[in-house]
Amino acid sequence: MASQGTKRSYEQMETDGERQNATEIRASVGKMIDGIGRFYIQMCTELKLSDYEGRLIQNSLTIERMVLSAFDERRNKYLEEHPSAGKDPKKTGGPIYKRVDRKWMRELVLYDKEEIRRIWRQANNGDDATAGLTHMMIWHSNLNDTTYQRTRALVRTGMDPRMCSLMQGSTLPRRSGAAGAAVKGVGTMVMELIRMIKRGINDRNFWRGENGRKTRSAYERMCNILKGKFQTAAQRAMMDQVRESRNPGNAEIEDLIFLARSALILRGSVAHKSCLPACVYGPAVASGYDFEKEGYSLVGIDPFKLLQNSQVYSLIRPNENPAHKSQLVWMACNSAAFEDLRVLSFIRGTKVSPRGKLSTRGVQIASNENMDAMESSTLELRSRYWAIRTRSGGNTNQQRASAGQISVQPAFSVQRNLPFDKPTIMAAFTGNTEGRTSDMRAEIIRMMEGAKPEEMSFQGRGVFELSDERAANPIVPSFDMSNEGSYFFGDNAEEYDN
């Protein structure tokens, strides 16, 4: 993207840094990872977990959730003011799984939030270390993106479920800051804005008074975040219109849905970061690795190297396929839920299948599930090659597409044709070009129609051997075009429920 120079890199967003050079960025990201790792080690000690239990991804998720809940100030305040039966607002906890007599047992633990905050700050040299908290939120978000298709949420806001490739980060909490905003897809931002506008339509006082002023500035800020994701002048001009509207209503909703559809071809720039579970960072720190000293990046080879040398386990339900569970977590670790499966298959070195073909449910185990038949197995999170994460949407291309997802959002900077089903997408653009945004709409449609099938995206960008740390010898991959490109292809993934 041309304006790259004016933006802070995501590592800076990730670490609240002012302008830093590459070495400083690597050190501050490393410091953040160190903090998460030290916190995780301490929690495993508190909970008396064995090494194996500490490497269980379900335990990692519970521990991450506990610290996120302990620092969720708004919710904590709300819980104190609106006490609900049987919930102690000062405590947080969740299921911890232990191996007892050759069987997995679930144990519900409860801790004072104050105590968890103390352990977290102690692991982070006394700081609140917001960057580390956001990092864990993005890992949870990436896992949700890989596990669930947001059909219901899309339909509720009037969008087409086939636009799911635009929904990265749709389950990120509001408090995820600049680093969170960077990884949100165009569809996620559109959905947040539509929800806001709908509230304004239904509630006369939404934009009024002292609160209304705050609401208005939040609305304009979200519009600017979305505008910054678009790469064409016409899309940005249309966002200006939406932002400046005196009284946002149905016309703005129409414009936003139009823009979301246009992003299936004229893709937005959305950041991709490899955020790993805390149970990967903990053992690495415990083994003596100093992330701050060595430096770390979320968008280069580092996460690949770390996963190459990590042992992570997962509980497996009786009829689940461990290899499929591994694929789910591998995609989440690489922030690749909406990437082209052919690119992923090449990088991973084994075939990556669409969601609907995987015999696996989510990673988390519900409290009512029976533990008797639970097994555990090693997650295979290694890769054959590594590639640089991208934040450009890439230019655009036609490809055989599917009944489910009709476009992709690249996660890796790797040369390819970008699949999208042009006739299906263009069919949504018939007729409606009147109104105050008509010239911009016409211009956007013209650009979409001009998108050429034979153009290559990320020209000359390749993948790298894991021994090639400096990215000196790019390998331009070859793809098996007979395979499906979309992950949520004609899909039956479970729906995400809060």
Rank of each mutant, 00 (worst) to 15 (best):
residue 335 S to E: 09
residue 167 M to Y: 05
residue 280 V to I: 15
residue 231 Q to I: 02
residue 389 R to V: 02
residue 470 R to Y: 11
residue 390 T to K: 07
residue 469 E to F: 04
residue 147 T to Q: 02
residue 329 V to G: 06
residue 442 A to C: 00
residue 330 W to N: 09
residue 276 L to R: 13
residue 252 E to G: 15
residue 332 A to L: 05
residue 492 N to V: 12
residue 485 G to F: 13
residue 292 E to R: 01
residue 269 S to F: 10
residue 335 S to C: 04
residue 8 R to Q: 13
residue 55 R to P: 03
residue 468 D to G: 06
residue 203 D to G: 08
residue 210 E to G: 08
residue 169 G to A: 14
residue 439 D to R: 02
residue 363 V to D: 09
residue 220 E to P: 11
residue 137 M to I: 04
residue 34 D to H: 01
residue 115 E to Q: 02
residue 292 E to M: 09
residue 301 I to L: 08
residue 486 S to M: 10
residue 94 G to S: 08
residue 431 G to E: 06
residue 327 Q to F: 12
residue 177 G to D: 10
residue 242 V to M: 13
residue 349 G to Q: 10
residue 149 Q to D: 11
residue 27 A to K: 02
residue 244 E to T: 04
residue 284 A to R: 00
residue 71 F to T: 06
residue 57 I to K: 06
residue 230 F to N: 08
residue 473 N to F: 09
residue 342 R to V: 01
residue 425 I to S: 06
residue 61 L to S: 07
residue 321 N to K: 14
residue 297 S to K: 10
residue 471 A to P: 08
residue 185 G to F: 10
residue 142 N to P: 06
residue 314 S to V: 00
residue 443 E to A: 06
residue 270 V to E: 10
residue 274 S to R: 10
residue 2 A to G: 14
residue 326 S to V: 11
residue 298 L to Y: 05
residue 480 D to R: 09
residue 52 Y to Q: 12
residue 30 G to F: 09
residue 435 G to A: 14
residue 164 C to Q: 14
residue 49 L to W: 06
residue 205 N to K: 02
residue 300 G to E: 12
residue 122 Q to D: 13
residue 436 R to L: 14
residue 382 R to F: 06
residue 14 E to K: 05
residue 197 I to K: 09
residue 440 M to N: 01
residue 319 N to E: 00
residue 139 W to P: 14
residue 199 R to G: 07
residue 333 C to F: 03
residue 62 T to K: 01
residue 264 L to M: 03
residue 219 Y to F: 14
residue 210 E to R: 08
residue 18 E to T: 02
residue 239 M to A: 00
residue 387 A to N: 13
residue 412 F to A: 06
residue 78 Y to H: 14
residue 260 A to M: 10
residue 75 R to T: 08
residue 83 P to C: 06
residue 279 C to E: 12
residue 407 S to E: 10
residue 137 M to K: 14
residue 491 D to F: 09
residue 77 K to W: 09
residue 271 A to Y: 09
residue 357 K to C: 03
residue 162 R to I: 15
residue 87 K to S: 03
residue 301 I to C: 05
residue 436 R to K: 13
residue 299 V to R: 08
residue 20 Q to L: 12
residue 442 A to H: 00
residue 270 V to G: 14
residue 1 M to N: 10
residue 200 G to N: 13
residue 494 E to L: 03
residue 298 L to S: 05
residue 305 K to W: 10
residue 69 S to L: 09
residue 439 D to H: 13
residue 65 R to A: 03
residue 311 Q to M: 03
residue 219 Y to W: 02
residue 185 G to V: 09
residue 259 L to Y: 06
residue 469 E to I: 15
residue 217 S to M: 08
residue 357 K to T: 01
residue 231 Q to Y: 04
residue 312 V to W: 06
residue 400 R to A: 03
residue 245 S to G: 07
residue 165 S to L: 08
residue 252 E to A: 14
residue 488 F to I: 14
residue 396 T to V: 14
residue 336 A to N: 06
residue 110 L to N: 10
residue 302 D to C: 08
residue 92 T to N: 04
residue 444 I to M: 15
residue 107 E to R: 14
residue 424 T to D: 01
residue 440 M to K: 02
residue 219 Y to V: 14
residue 177 G to C: 08
residue 162 R to V: 00
residue 483 N to S: 03
residue 120 W to C: 05
residue 111 Y to R: 06
residue 130 T to Q: 01
residue 433 T to D: 00
residue 467 S to H: 02
residue 437 T to N: 14
residue 397 N to D: 14
residue 298 L to C: 14
residue 201 I to K: 07
residue 289 Y to L: 09
residue 263 A to E: 02
residue 33 I to L: 00
residue 486 S to Y: 05
residue 29 V to Q: 07
residue 56 L to V: 13
residue 127 D to F: 02
residue 380 E to G: 03
residue 359 S to R: 05
residue 121 R to T: 13
residue 233 A to K: 04
residue 63 I to R: 03
residue 194 I to L: 03
residue 89 P to R: 03
residue 371 M to K: 03
residue 132 G to T: 03
residue 274 S to A: 14
residue 261 R to C: 12
residue 270 V to R: 10
residue 449 E to R: 08
residue 97 Y to C: 09
residue 287 S to F: 10
residue 52 Y to S: 14
residue 127 D to R: 00
residue 258 F to L: 07
residue 178 A to G: 08
residue 133 L to N: 13
residue 148 Y to G: 07
residue 190 V to H: 07
residue 476 V to N: 12
residue 140 H to N: 05
residue 465 E to T: 10
residue 65 R to W: 10
residue 318 P to N: 13
residue 318 P to R: 01
residue 123 A to V: 05
residue 494 E to D: 08
residue 137 M to H: 05
residue 129 A to I: 00
residue 339 E to I: 12
residue 374 M to D: 10
residue 427 A to G: 15
residue 330 W to R: 03
residue 356 G to W: 08
residue 265 I to S: 05
residue 448 M to G: 06
residue 437 T to K: 03
residue 377 S to L: 12
residue 207 W to P: 03
residue 325 K to P: 11
residue 129 A to K: 00
residue 290 D to M: 10
residue 302 D to E: 07
residue 423 P to I: 08
residue 400 R to E: 05
residue 46 E to M: 15
residue 439 D to T: 09
residue 219 Y to Q: 10
residue 26 R to T: 04
residue 202 N to R: 00
residue 355 R to G: 13
residue 125 N to V: 02
residue 381 L to A: 05
residue 2 A to H: 13
residue 365 I to E: 08
residue 362 G to H: 11
residue 425 I to D: 03
residue 479 F to K: 15
residue 299 V to C: 10
residue 325 K to F: 11
residue 333 C to Y: 13
residue 395 N to K: 03
residue 243 R to V: 07
residue 346 F to I: 15
residue 416 R to K: 14
residue 191 M to K: 03
residue 114 E to R: 05
residue 58 Q to M: 06
residue 415 Q to P: 02
residue 255 D to T: 11
residue 177 G to Y: 09
residue 471 A to D: 10
residue 259 L to S: 09
residue 215 T to K: 02
residue 220 E to K: 14
residue 386 W to P: 08
residue 371 M to W: 04
residue 279 C to Q: 12
residue 109 V to E: 08
residue 89 P to A: 01
